[in-house]
Amino acid sequence: MLHVENLTASIGDTSILKGLNLDVGAGEIHAIMGPNGSGKSTLAHALAGRDGYEIGGTVTLDGVDLLEMVPEDRAAAGVFMGFQYPVEIPGVNNMYFLRTALNSVRRARGDEQIGASDFLKGAQDAMDLVEMNHDFLYRSVNAGFSGGEKKRNEILQMAVMQPKLAVLDETDSGLDIDALRVVAAGVNSLRGPDRSMIVITHYQRLLDYIKPDFVHVLVDGKIVKSGDHTLALHLEDHGYADFVNHDLDDAPLTGAPA
């Protein structure tokens, strides 16, 4: 489904992704783990289409070239990114935003528009999935939401958008254990044979709840090790030290996982 080959990303003279290869099959969940500064979030943004990077290599989704597309076209092609830091948008109400988003991708795909009342039903089901109070539909997007509410809102959006490929960037950061359980349950319920997911995280903890088919270790812009979920357990015990070779001593690996 997703094919990533020799992906490079840089900002100015700083190269961040240095030839990354990854294949994600339909229905699979892949976890990407790695120390701070290894390029995890850059990978997510490179897939979602954020401006400002020099990108090289190949990324295709079901054979379609994603790299040439602007972010909205990637969303229409089925890509969804769950943000590590969801953006607050005062003045834009959550329901209006969600319906505009859904109808935009439907329009791009040539599907019919969804009316307000049909949309509301679907949105309320999605809210129940992430145990969100329905009032949140009428509040401004993420404005004044707590960390946990923002992350639930990301999963809510994912449930509404029904993407082919979900890239969840540190969806567990800033969550207490109860919120983590709710978010993970939401993600699990969205698993399906036609939906692939890339779950980016620092911690093994999230992977207790969302069990990945594969785990990859990202260090200094490359995947240095891949394995099954037991690799995550190894990382939990030993950290990333095993994978950071001496050539990389100068690499910006500042800061332990917070």
């Binding site: 979602a48 289409g49 954020r50 909205e72 969303a75 229409a76 834009v92 935003f97 988003a101 991708v105």
Partner: peptide, 24 residues
């Protein structure tokens, strides 16, 4: 950042801008 967030949800650039302006 807000523009990118909206576009990543499939909302075309021009409409995303309008949404932000109206929101303001």
């Amino acid at each position: 950042a807000a523009l990118y967030y909206l576009r990543s949800r499939g909302i075309p650039n021009e409409e995303a801008s309008r949404l932000l302006i109206n929101g303001f």
